[in-house]
C-alpha cells in the first residue's frame, strides 16, 4: 500500500512537469508575438527572451503606412466578415436546428442524414466551383464572398439541434395551448431558453470565421479587401524578416480572439462538447 502511494505521487510529479513543459510550448507563440511587437530589434540573434526596452515603433509603423499595409482596414474587414457570418449562422441554424429537434415532419430523417454527411465533407473540395459561383454572382473579391462561403455549412444546425433537444416538449405544448403561434413560440420561448446555445454558436462562428484563412485566401485578392490574417500572410511573403511589423500584425489578429475566448470559455467548451456528440 505504501509503495503504491509513492508510485502514484511520483507519476503525479512527472505528469505535472510534462504538462508544464508542453504548456510553455503552446504559450510560446503568443508570448513571442506580444513581446516581439514591442522589441526594438526583434530579429537580433541571440534573441532577447524578454524585451530590454519597450517600444511602440512597430505599432506606429503598422498603422502609419495605409497604402502599403492598410492594417486598420484589414482589421475592420475581418470584423465585418465575422460579425455578418455570425448573425446569418445564428438565425438560419437556430431555426433549422429547432424544427429538426422538435417537429416530426415528413423527410426529417433524410434531411438530417444529408446534413451529417455534409459535415464530414472536406470544405476545400468545392474551392473551384465556389469561386466560380461567387464570380458569376458578381461578388468575387468582396467580403460577401467569404461570408456566403462560410454560412452554408451545417455545423451550427447540428449544434442548435443538440441544444433544442434539451427543451421539454411540454413547455412548447403549453405555450401553444395558451394561444401562441409557431413564430411566437420560437421567438419568445425557444430563443429565450436557448440563450446559452446562441452564445456558444456565436463565439464559435465568430472565432472560426475570423481564422478561416483558406476561404479568405481564395476569395479575396485586392489589397484593401484583405482580412487581417491574410494581410499578415501577405506582409510575411513580401518582407519576411521585418519581424517587428509582422508580430504587431499577428498580435492585432490574435489578441481579440484570445480575449473573446477567455471571456466566454465556458460557452466555447460547451459548444465543442455538444457539437461533437452524435445522434
Amino acid at each position: 500500500m505504501n509503495v503504491k502511494r509513492k508510485e502514484i505521487s511520483f507519476y503525479r510529479v512527472l505528469s505535472t512537469i510534462v504538462l508544464i513543459v508542453l504548456a510553455i510550448l503552446f504559450l510560446f507563440p503568443l508570448y513571442w508575438i506580444i513581446t516581439g511587437s514591442f522589441k526594438l530589434n526583434p530579429e537580433r540573434v541571440p534573441p532577447e527572451w524578454f524585451p530590454k526596452t519597450w517600444s511602440l515603433v512597430h505599432w506606429t509603423r503598422l498603422f502609419g503606412n495605409p497604402t502599403r499595409q492598410p492594417a486598420l482596414r484589414w482589421f475592420l474587414n475581418s470584423l465585418v466578415i465575422s460579425l455578418l457570418s455570425m448573425v446569418l449562422t445564428l438565425i438560419s441554424s437556430s431555426m433549422a436546428g429547432y424544427v429538426l429537434a422538435k417537429k416530426k415532419f415528413t423527410g426529417r430523417r433524410v434531411i438530417f442524414i444529408i446534413l451529417i454527411l455534409a459535415m464530414a465533407l472536406p470544405k476545400q473540395v468545392i474551392l473551384v466551383p465556389l469561386m466560380r459561383l461567387m464570380n458569376s454572382l458578381g461578388i468575387y473579391n468582396t467580403l460577401w464572398a467569404v461570408i456566403l462561403g462560410s454560412v452554408g455549412w451545417p455545423f451550427g444546425v447540428f449544434l442548435m439541434k443538440q441544444f433544442s433537444q434539451g427543451i421539454p416538449t411540454e413547455l412548447i405544448e403549453a405555450a401553444k395551448i395558451d394561444g401562441a403561434g409557431e413564430i411566437r413560440v420560437f421567438l419568445e420561448l425557444i430563443c429565450h431558453l436557448m440563450q446559452p446555445a446562441f452564445a456558444s454558436l456565436a463565439i464559435f462562428t465568430f472565432i472560426n470565421t475570423w481564422n478561416d484563412y483558406f476561404l479568405q485566401l481564395v476569395m479575396l485578392t485586392s489589397r484593401e479587401r484583405l482580412t487581417i490574417a491574410l494581410g499578415i500572410a501577405t506582409m510575411q511573403a513580401e518582407m519576411s524578416i521585418d519581424y517587428g511589423l509582422i508580430m504587431a500584425g499577428a498580435a492585432l489578429s490574435a489578441i481579440p480572439m484570445i480575449l473573446i475566448f477567455v471571456a466566454f470559455q465556458k460557452y466555447f467548451t460547451k459548444g465543442i462538447t455538444l457539437g461533437a456528440l452524435k445522434g
Binding site: 438565425i91 438560419s92 424544427v99 417537429k103 434531411i111 456566403l148
Partner: peptide, 28 residues
C-alpha cells in the same frame, strides 16, 4: 401543418446550404 411550418423554418438555412454547399459539390 407541421410540415409547412417546419419547411418554412428550414428555408433560410436550406437556401444557404443548397446554394453554397450542395450545388458547388455537384458542379465540382
Amino acid at each position: 401543418e407541421t410540415n409547412t411550418t417546419s419547411y418554412l423554418f428550414l428555408l433560410p438555412f436550406a437556401i444557404l446550404f443548397i446554394s453554397f454547399v450542395l450545388i458547388p459539390i455537384f458542379i465540382g
